[in-house]
């Protein structure tokens, strides 16, 4: 089945749980099959599937009222990262290797839903800004700024964890 892994990975990035990712993947693919007639031939099938997945997840969050108060989903932070002085890691690659995969995924899960999804689609799935804009329903410029903010927030989360563990890299 094409793009099944990508849909599942995205569901996992959104939910941070394998059982929820299973459920989301199944729901998204069944919905895609149900609405297959709406798929435009010669368009991006992966983006179409991920947009369905994203909409299902957003609907669920709204229904469960876990998206927080009436803040726009794209800007609301689920977990605010501790303030760490703005700096540049001199040994970013080595420092990041100290984290387990699970810790990195957990840190990503602390980002706001739309930031998390945008950063994931750009950095992990390697989608272009235009494709991500299509999936998330925002302008390309918003995708770029959101990706940048998301990366900065993720860095803060990881930096806080690195400080706790005494791994913090040398700062410039």
């Amino acid at each position: 089945m094409p793009h099944l892994d990508a849909v599942y990975r995205t569901a996992y990035a959104l939910s941070g749980r394998s059982d929820t990712a299973d459920d989301l993947t199944q729901a998204a693919l069944l919905k895609a099959l149900e609405h297959f007639s709406s798929f435009q031939v010669n368009t991006n099938c992966k983006a179409w599937l991920l947009r369905i997945l994203r909409n299902i997840w957003i609907d669920r969050l709204r229904r469960l009222k876990t998206a927080g108060p009436q803040l726009p989903l794209d800007e609301a932070l689920v977990g605010e990262a501790p303030e760490i002085a703005e700096s540049v890691w001199s040994d970013a690659h080595d420092l990041l290797e100290n984290f387990s995969d699970e810790q990195v995924i957990k840190a990503l899960a602390q980002l706001a839903v739309e930031q998390r999804l945008t950063l994931y689609l750009v950095d992990v799935e390697g989608l272009g800004h235009e494709e991500v804009a299509e999936i998330t329903g925002v302008a390309v410029g918003t995708v770029k700024s959101r990706t940048s903010r998301a990366r900065a927030t993720l860095k803060k989360c990881l930096a806080a964890r690195a400080n706790e563990m005494g791994w913090a890299g040398e700062r410039r």
Partner: peptide, 21 residues
């Protein structure tokens, strides 16, 4: 700053590399 952003992107990719259905 660019190297740091690239390192974060690279680490994210690696974290999800083993996530499969």
């Amino acid at each position: 700053r660019l190297a740091e952003k690239q390192a974060i992107a690279s680490r994210l990719q690696k974290a999800f590399a083993e996530v499969h259905v």
